[in-house]
Design a protein around this nucleic acid. Structure first.
Lengths: 341, 341
DNA sequence: CTGAAAGCGCTTACAG
DNA sequence: CTGAAAGCGCTTACAG
C-alpha cells in the first residue's frame, strides 16, 4: 500500500498514442512538435499526473539544474544580513525563471578539500571570495563553469564587480570637502578564520587615496572594527564615539554598518549629521528611509546579479571552454548624498 | 579542456579484469566477493579515482539516501537555538554513520502543497509538528516512511516523545512543595502563523494539573510569553519581574527560556533562587554550568533521536508497509534539582 | 564466488 | 513533424 507506481513518460506516450520521444519533446523541445500533438501530450500528461523524474533527467543530460552559491559567511549570518537577503532574493528570482535550483555553500570554517567536487552543481557563483580562500581553488579544480561577484580581481574568472575604489574615493572626498578632518572608518575586523572580503579591501584603498590626494595625513582616517549587525547599534556607535580625538564623521564599508551607527547615535542623542556625519556603501533599500536618510554609494545590484547569472548560464550551455580571457565587468558607483552627511 | 571524462564502474571492471557486477558488489555487498578480488577491485578503483555516481545509483535503487527533517521554525532560528543545535548534531552523527544526508525543511510561512511530494527524500522526521500543521498532512500524503519526535500524539505515525505532562507535573510540584504560591510560567506566545508546538501544550497541562492536585487555585500560575532567545535575557526577566503580584518562582517550558530569565535576573541584581526560583525543561548542556546551575527536567535526547532514526531506517529498508499500529514511545523525564530552585 | 542481462526513466542524435 | 534505438552509470535478480 505504500508504493504507488510512478507515472512514467512511457505511460504518457502509450496513453497519448505517441512515441516516448514525442513526450520528451513536448517538454524539452516543444517547437519540434505540431501544436496539436503537443497539446494532446501535455493534456494526457496532466491527466495522468505525470511528473518528469529529475534524477533520470540528470543522468541522461548530465545536468543537475543546480548552481552552487559560495558565500563568505555562515548560514545564520546570510539569513540575517540585509545585503545578502537582497542578493539571495535576486538570485532566487532569476533561477526560478530559468528553473534552476540554488545550493548555498557557506565558505567558513573547515572546508573539506574534496567537498566541492562531489557537489552536484552545473556551475558556481562565488560571492565576495578572496584569492586566498581555499574554496577559490577548490572551485577552479572542479573545472565547472563559474562566475564571481564582488570578487578578487586577480582571479581568472568572469568577474562582476562594482568600482569599489572609486566609490570609496568619492565618499571620502565628499566628507573632506565638507570640512571633516577626523574621520572614523567603520570596517570589518580581521576574521578569526583569516577570510578576507575583497570588496572591503578595495574600499579601504579608495578612502586612503582620497585622503592622500587631498594632501591630508593618513591619520585623518581612523579604522574602527564594527560588526555588520543592526542589533549592534549601541556598541558600534560607542566604539566610534569614544575615539580620541572624537571624529566628526564616519565612513562605513557597508550600509548595514552605517545604519547601525546611525541608530546608535540616535539612541545616544547624538545628532546626525550635526555632531557626526555618516556615509555608507551599497544603498540598501532601508538606507533611503532611515532617520536621517543615509548618504551612500548607489549600485544596481540586481542588474549586476542578472548579468552574472546570464554569463554563468551561458557558460553552462556552451559546455566547451573557449579560451578567451574571462571578462571583467566593473560597474561604476554613484554617490547618493542624503541627509546623514 | 573542461570536460574530464568521469571514471565509471565499467572502467574499474575492465582495469581489474572483473565484471561490472563484481565492482558493484565490492561496494554494496562485499561479503559476496572473495577477500582477494574485493581488495583488488577497491585498489584499482582508488587508483583510477573512481567515485560511484550517486545519481545513477539513485535511479537504479530508487533511494536518494536523504531524509527530510521537518522543523517548526525558520532556518535562522534553527541555527541559533541550542536545543535545535543539539538535535541537529545528533541527527547528523547518526546520518553520517548510515551514509544518509539530511535535508532541512523549515515548516514556516507558506508551505506549497505539492512541495513535499517533489522532495527527494527516502523518509521524513517530523520534529515538534502539530496535527493541524499543513506539513503533517502533506508528509502523510507522500506515502513515504516517517517518524515523529516530540510530536502530536493524536497523529498516526511512530512517535518518540518524552513524558511532557509528568515532567511538567514534577516541576510544578517541586516548586509548590518549596512553598511557592505565585508562579510565572515562561512559555511561547501564540505564533503569528498559528503553528502550535505540541510539547509546550502538554507541558502547560502538566503544570496546571499539579496546581489543581495541590488544591491551589488556577491563578497560582501566571503565563508569560517570552522568546526562546538567550539574547532576550533582559526583556524576558523584566516581563516576569513586573508581574503584579510579583512571582516568587518561574517555570519555563524550555531551558533556553529559563537560562534567559536567569541571566536577566543576574544582570538586574535579583538573587536566584532567593528572590526568584527558576525551573527549566530539557536539560541543555549549558544548564548544568549556568550561574546558578539550573533545576530542570532531564531526558536522554540523543538516545531518543537514535531510536527514532533507527525506526525510520527500518521502515525505509522494509519498504512494504506492514499494517501494525505505529508505536508510541514516551520516555519518562526526571527532575534534576540544582541550585536555581 | 562470479558474470551476462535487464532495467531504473529519461534524452538525443539519427533516420525517415 | 515523428519514431526506433542507444545511452547516461549504476543495481540486482538470475543463472552458473
Amino acid at each position: 500500500m505504500s508504493k504507488k507506481k510512478r507515472v512514467t513518460l512511457r505511460d504518457v506516450a502509450k496513453q497519448a498514442g505517441v512515441s516516448p520521444t514525442a513526450v520528451s519533446f513536448a517538454y524539452n523541445a516543444p517547437h519540434q512538435l505540431s501544436q496539436a500533438t503537443r497539446d494532446r501530450i501535455i493534456d494526457t500528461a496532466n491527466e495522468l499526473g505525470y511528473q518528469p523524474h529529475p534524477v533520470a533527467r540528470t543522468l541522461a543530460t548530465g545536468r543537475t539544474n543546480t548552481i552552487g552559491l559560495v558565500m563568505p559567511t555562515g548560514l545564520d549570518w546570510i539569513l540575517h544580513d540585509p545585503l545578502f537577503s537582497l542578493i539571495l532574493g535576486e538570485i532566487g528570482t532569476v533561477c526560478d525563471e530559468e528553473k534552476m535550483r540554488i545550493l548555498i555553500i557557506p565558505a567558513i570554517g573547515e572546508v573539506s578539500p574534496g567537498l566541492l567536487a562531489t557537489i552536484a552543481a552545473d556551475g558556481f557563483v562565488l560571492f565576495s571570495i578572496h584569492r586566498n580562500h581555499p574554496l577559490a581553488k577548490a572551485v577552479e579544480r572542479t573545472n565547472r563553469p563559474l562566475v564571481m561577484i564582488n570578487g578578487d580581481e586577480s582571479l581568472a574568472a568572469p568577474m562582476f564587480n562594482v568600482d569599489d575604489f572609486n566609490g570609496a574615493y568619492q565618499a571620502a572626498q565628499h566628507l573632506i570637502e565638507k570640512g571633516h578632518r577626523r574621520i572614523a572608518v567603520g570596517t570589518i575586523g580581521p576574521r578569526q578564520d583569516g577570510v578576507i572580503i575583497p570588496t572591503y579591501e578595495r574600499r579601504m584603498l579608495g578612502y586612503e587615496a582620497a585622503v592622500r590626494d587631498a594632501g591630508l595625513p593618513p591619520s585623518t582616517l581612523r579604522p574602527v572594527f564594527i560588526r555588520g549587525l543592526l542589533s549592534m547599534a549601541k556598541e558600534s556607535f560607542e566604539k566610534i564615539w569614544s575615539l580620541d580625538p572624537r571624529p566628526t564623521a564616519v565612513l562605513c564599508v557597508s550600509d548595514v554598518r552605517a545604519l547601525s551607527v546611525l541608530n546608535g547615535a540616535r539612541k545616544a542623542g547624538v545628532s546626525v549629521p550635526g555632531d557626526l556625519a555618516v556615509v555608507g556603501f551599497d544603498n540598501l533599500p532601508d538606507s533611503a528611509v532611515s532617520t536621517p536618510p543615509l548618504t551612500t554609494l548607489k549600485q544596481d545590484l540586481p542588474g549586476r546579479i542578472r548579468l552574472a547569472l546570464r554569463a554563468l548560464f551561458g557558460l553552462i550551455a556552451e559546455e566547451g571552454g573557449d579560451d578567451e580571457p574571462p571578462p571583467l565587468h566593473i560597474t561604476p558607483m554613484e554617490l547618493e548624498v542624503r541627509e546623514s552627511s
